[in-house]
Design a binder for these strands. Structure first.
Length: 356
DNA sequence: TTTATTTGACCCAT
DNA sequence: ATGGGTCAAATAAA
């Protein structure tokens, strides 16, 4: 992309982001006495912004080698947050997003590597908790290493249900050297386990651990059952050829097209998730609240969800459950259901193809 | 007793 | 040879 186009691209993102922020503020004002229609409209607005931003960011960055040094020197348009909630650390978002681009590129080059992505989780230190809260999945620690040059050790986790449900996702948690309240969480692969079945047993052990060990580090967000059920109840996904062809899934993947704001949870939640070729290349944004009970905020970027390598999962699960699992990222159902290693073969991310 | 964590050993890529 | 990631025995917790 040349400079002019890049500038336009940044500006567009900036404008979209501002619009989204304003819509969010409007919703806050309306929420006290809002009718369902108002809320629905706002959800639509926000959803549109989300998708537009995501499309832009994807097409704008994947189509070119790298975003031209975006915002690193004091703020370009990409500084805008993708997150509906308006998470504060835009630089982190930005950095993460660039990381995702790189990950995607790498994944295309090296077909064997699992997709990885990194989230930076900021934890408020004045609430007595020293680690990120749980992300709705059950993790089992299997290692800890001191990393060269790092002040804090790196912890290694795998899904508790690796063997039971053949779920091979892992994550690494590394406390930031510069800001000990920031935890960098790197995920590898995607959950294929049944989140619903696992969800109940997740939260309490982690909280306990967090209170016990100050240098422990975990995950990022809560995913209440209520939200999960909401998600499940409204999920509509293309189920065809799912069980057999996940590794060569064609340009068809789930996508939350509508967000639901659950007041008690202070979070947005997707309520309808089906999208097909038309929006391929977009991905579900991080619908993450800045106001969880533990005052965490998160910077999350895109999520590559490789379903390869986990085909024979959940033989006895229902179709819906399979889909939930297959479309759930560690931050709660927000990712691709597309194998990034197939991206280059199946899909051209060029801008021209994107904007008709 | 079962399940999770800790931690040194081991493996592998560089 | 080194560093990062995983394994697995020992230990702790439930």
């Amino acid at each position: 992309m040349d400079c002019a186009t890049n500038w336009e691209y940044k500006t567009l993102i900036n404008e979209l982001t501002q619009g989204m922020e304003q819509a969010k503020q409007l919703r806050v004002h309306l929420s006290s006495s809002s009718s369902e229609a108002q809320e629905f409209l706002l959800q639509r607005i926000l959803s549109s912004y989300e998708k537009a931003l995501l499309i832009l960011k994807w097409s704008g960055s994947v189509g070119q080698p790298q975003p031209t040094a975006p915002a690193s020197a004091g703020g370009g348009a990409l500084e805008s947050s993708l997150s509906v909630d308006g998470s504060p650390r835009s630089e982190e978002l930005n950095k993460n997003f660039r990381d995702q681009q790189q990950e995607l590129i790498n994944a295309s080059k090296k077909r064997k590597t699992l997709p990885t992505w990194t989230e930076q989780v900021k934890v408020s230190s004045d609430n007595g908790l020293e680690g990120p809260s749980d992300d709705g999945y059950s993790w089992r620690k299997y290692g800890q290493k001191h990393i060269l040059g790092a002040k804090y050790p790196r912890s290694y986790y795998r899904c508790t249900y690796r063997h039971i449900q053949n779920c091979w996702v892992t994550k690494q948690v590394q406390r930031s050297d510069e800001d000990p309240t920031i935890f960098e969480i790197t995920y590898r692969g995607a959950h294929t386990c049944n989140l619903a079945a696992n969800n109940n047993s997740v939260a309490s052990p982690e909280k306990k651990e967090l209170k016990q060990k100050n240098n422990q580090n975990n995950n990022q967000m809560q995913q209440p059952n209520e939200m999960l059920m909401n998600f499940r109840a409204n999920l509509r996904v293309n189920t065809t050829d799912d069980s057999e062809n996940k590794d060569k899934i064609s340009p068809s993947f789930s996508f939350p097209s509508t967000l639901t704001y659950i007041e008690g949870e202070n979070q947005y939640f997707p309520t309808s998730t089906y999208i097909d070729e038309d929006l391929l290349g977009t991905y579900s944004p991080p619908f993450i609240s800045p106001a969880t009970s533990e005052s965490n905020y998160f910077s999350v970027s895109c999520h590559m969800n490789s379903l390869g390598g986990a085909h024979n999962l959940q033989q006895s699960e229902s179709d819906l459950t399979d889909l939930i699992s297959a479309t759930n990222s560690p931050i709660g159902g927000l990712d691709f259901s597309i194998d990034p290693t197939e991206l280059d073969a199946n899909f051209n991310f060029s801008r021209s193809g994107f904007f008709k």
